Amino acid sequence: KFNKERVIAIGEIMRLPNLNSLQVVAFINSLRDDPSQSANLLAEAKKLNDAQAP
Rank of each mutant, 00 (worst) to 15 (best):
residue 15 R to Y: 04
residue 50 D to N: 08
residue 21 S to R: 12
residue 23 Q to M: 03
residue 30 S to K: 13
residue 54 P to T: 09
residue 47 K to Y: 06
residue 36 S to R: 08
residue 41 L to S: 03
residue 5 E to F: 05
residue 53 A to R: 09
residue 39 A to I: 10
residue 47 K to I: 11
residue 19 L to D: 00
residue 45 A to P: 01
residue 54 P to C: 14
residue 19 L to M: 02
residue 44 E to D: 06
residue 31 L to R: 00
residue 22 L to W: 14
residue 54 P to V: 07
residue 51 A to C: 13
residue 50 D to V: 07
residue 49 N to C: 03
residue 16 L to S: 01
residue 45 A to E: 00
residue 54 P to F: 09
residue 35 P to Q: 05
residue 50 D to A: 10
residue 26 A to V: 10
residue 28 I to A: 03
residue 49 N to M: 03
residue 44 E to H: 05
residue 29 N to Y: 05
residue 1 K to T: 05
residue 13 I to F: 03
residue 23 Q to C: 03
residue 38 S to R: 06
residue 31 L to C: 03
residue 3 N to C: 15
residue 11 G to R: 11
residue 44 E to M: 13
residue 16 L to M: 12
residue 31 L to E: 01
residue 50 D to G: 08
residue 2 F to Y: 06
residue 12 E to N: 05
residue 9 A to D: 02
residue 12 E to K: 13
residue 30 S to R: 13
residue 44 E to R: 11
residue 33 D to K: 11
residue 2 F to W: 04
residue 13 I to N: 00
residue 6 R to H: 15
residue 28 I to V: 04
residue 38 S to T: 11
residue 2 F to H: 15
residue 48 L to P: 00
residue 53 A to C: 13
residue 18 N to E: 02
residue 11 G to D: 05
residue 7 V to Y: 14
residue 54 P to H: 10
residue 44 E to N: 05
residue 25 V to I: 13
residue 13 I to S: 01
residue 45 A to R: 00
residue 24 V to E: 02
residue 49 N to Q: 01
residue 27 F to K: 01
residue 5 E to R: 03
residue 3 N to F: 08
residue 38 S to G: 04
residue 10 I to F: 05
residue 22 L to N: 12
residue 29 N to P: 01
residue 43 A to D: 11
residue 16 L to G: 01
residue 43 A to K: 09
residue 48 L to G: 00
residue 40 N to R: 11
residue 37 Q to N: 08
residue 32 R to A: 14
residue 34 D to M: 08
residue 34 D to Q: 08
residue 44 E to C: 12
residue 14 M to R: 09
residue 3 N to A: 07
residue 49 N to K: 00
residue 14 M to N: 04
residue 1 K to S: 15
residue 39 A to E: 09
residue 13 I to R: 00
residue 46 K to H: 07
residue 30 S to I: 12
residue 9 A to Y: 06
residue 7 V to E: 15
residue 53 A to N: 07
residue 17 P to G: 08
residue 35 P to R: 03
residue 25 V to R: 12
residue 13 I to C: 02
residue 8 I to L: 11
residue 9 A to V: 10
residue 18 N to M: 03
residue 51 A to V: 09
residue 44 E to T: 08
residue 32 R to D: 15
residue 52 Q to F: 05
residue 15 R to K: 09
residue 37 Q to W: 06
residue 41 L to F: 07
residue 51 A to I: 08
residue 6 R to F: 15
residue 5 E to Y: 04
residue 48 L to A: 07
residue 47 K to T: 11
residue 34 D to S: 07
residue 51 A to K: 10
residue 41 L to Q: 04
residue 45 A to C: 02
residue 17 P to L: 07
residue 50 D to L: 09
residue 53 A to Q: 11
residue 50 D to Y: 07
residue 9 A to K: 02
residue 37 Q to C: 08
residue 16 L to R: 00
residue 35 P to H: 06
residue 41 L to G: 01
residue 52 Q to M: 13
residue 42 L to S: 03
residue 15 R to S: 11
residue 13 I to V: 03
residue 19 L to V: 01
residue 50 D to T: 06
residue 7 V to T: 12
residue 34 D to A: 07
residue 39 A to Y: 11
residue 12 E to T: 12
residue 41 L to M: 10
residue 23 Q to E: 02
residue 52 Q to P: 02
residue 26 A to K: 08
residue 40 N to H: 14
residue 8 I to K: 10
residue 13 I to Y: 01
residue 20 N to R: 11
residue 37 Q to D: 06
residue 14 M to L: 08
residue 39 A to F: 13
residue 35 P to S: 07
residue 28 I to K: 02
residue 20 N to K: 10
residue 49 N to A: 03
residue 43 A to S: 13
residue 29 N to E: 13
residue 42 L to F: 03
residue 29 N to D: 11
residue 30 S to G: 09
residue 5 E to W: 05
residue 40 N to V: 09
residue 27 F to L: 06
residue 12 E to H: 09
residue 54 P to K: 09
residue 45 A to V: 02
residue 49 N to H: 02
residue 7 V to G: 04
residue 12 E to M: 12
residue 14 M to A: 04
residue 1 K to I: 14
residue 43 A to Y: 12
residue 36 S to N: 05
residue 19 L to A: 00
residue 51 A to L: 10
residue 26 A to H: 11
residue 11 G to Q: 08
residue 4 K to L: 03
residue 34 D to E: 07
residue 35 P to N: 05
residue 41 L to A: 10
residue 39 A to G: 11
residue 33 D to V: 12
residue 43 A to H: 08
residue 43 A to G: 06
residue 28 I to P: 01
residue 53 A to T: 08
residue 34 D to R: 06
residue 18 N to Y: 12
residue 12 E to Q: 10
residue 10 I to L: 10
residue 15 R to N: 09
residue 35 P to F: 13
residue 30 S to Y: 10
residue 43 A to I: 10
residue 31 L to M: 05
residue 11 G to M: 13
residue 44 E to P: 00
residue 12 E to L: 14
residue 47 K to P: 01
residue 1 K to V: 07
residue 30 S to N: 07
residue 45 A to N: 00
residue 46 K to N: 05
residue 22 L to M: 09
residue 8 I to D: 03
residue 38 S to I: 15
residue 49 N to V: 02
residue 25 V to K: 10
residue 29 N to V: 08
residue 7 V to M: 14
residue 40 N to K: 11
residue 34 D to N: 09
residue 14 M to P: 01
residue 48 L to Y: 03
residue 11 G to W: 12
residue 12 E to F: 14
residue 15 R to E: 04
residue 9 A to W: 06
residue 4 K to H: 09
residue 46 K to I: 10
residue 30 S to M: 13
residue 1 K to W: 14
residue 1 K to L: 03
residue 44 E to V: 12
residue 31 L to D: 01
residue 24 V to S: 03
residue 8 I to A: 05
residue 10 I to C: 10
residue 1 K to N: 15
residue 41 L to I: 12
residue 28 I to H: 02
residue 23 Q to W: 03
residue 14 M to F: 04
residue 21 S to I: 11
residue 4 K to R: 03
residue 21 S to K: 08
residue 6 R to N: 14
residue 41 L to K: 08
residue 1 K to A: 14
residue 23 Q to H: 02
residue 14 M to V: 10
residue 47 K to G: 06
residue 28 I to M: 11
residue 2 F to R: 15
residue 30 S to A: 10
residue 41 L to H: 03
residue 43 A to Q: 09
residue 20 N to F: 06
residue 40 N to S: 13
residue 42 L to D: 00
residue 22 L to G: 10
residue 44 E to F: 12
residue 49 N to D: 04
residue 37 Q to Y: 06
residue 17 P to I: 10
residue 11 G to C: 15
residue 2 F to G: 15
residue 37 Q to L: 09
residue 20 N to L: 10
residue 36 S to G: 06
residue 13 I to T: 00
residue 35 P to M: 12
residue 34 D to C: 14
residue 29 N to M: 10
residue 27 F to C: 04
residue 2 F to C: 15
residue 16 L to Y: 04
residue 11 G to Y: 11
residue 38 S to H: 14
residue 44 E to W: 07
residue 23 Q to N: 02
residue 4 K to C: 15
residue 26 A to G: 13
residue 4 K to A: 09
residue 12 E to A: 13
residue 39 A to N: 09
residue 4 K to S: 13
residue 1 K to R: 13
residue 17 P to Q: 08
residue 33 D to I: 13
residue 19 L to H: 01
residue 33 D to Y: 10
residue 36 S to E: 08
residue 48 L to N: 02
residue 4 K to N: 13
residue 54 P to Q: 09
residue 45 A to Y: 04
residue 10 I to N: 02
residue 34 D to P: 02
residue 15 R to G: 06
residue 10 I to V: 06
residue 21 S to C: 14
residue 19 L to N: 00
residue 48 L to W: 05
residue 30 S to C: 11
residue 46 K to M: 08
residue 39 A to T: 12
residue 20 N to H: 12
residue 32 R to S: 14
residue 20 N to G: 06
residue 25 V to P: 01
residue 49 N to F: 02
residue 53 A to I: 09
residue 52 Q to Y: 05
residue 3 N to Q: 14
residue 48 L to I: 07
residue 21 S to V: 11
residue 31 L to I: 13
residue 49 N to E: 00
residue 14 M to S: 06
residue 30 S to T: 12
residue 32 R to F: 15
residue 53 A to P: 05
residue 13 I to W: 01
residue 18 N to G: 02
residue 8 I to S: 04
residue 3 N to L: 08
residue 51 A to S: 08
residue 15 R to T: 10
residue 11 G to N: 07
residue 47 K to V: 07
residue 48 L to D: 01
residue 45 A to S: 02
residue 19 L to S: 00
residue 18 N to F: 09
residue 25 V to S: 10
residue 38 S to E: 02
residue 30 S to F: 12
residue 4 K to I: 04
residue 22 L to H: 12
residue 6 R to S: 15
residue 34 D to Y: 07
residue 32 R to M: 14
residue 10 I to T: 04
residue 2 F to E: 15
residue 10 I to G: 02
residue 42 L to T: 06
residue 24 V to G: 01
residue 10 I to E: 14
residue 40 N to L: 10
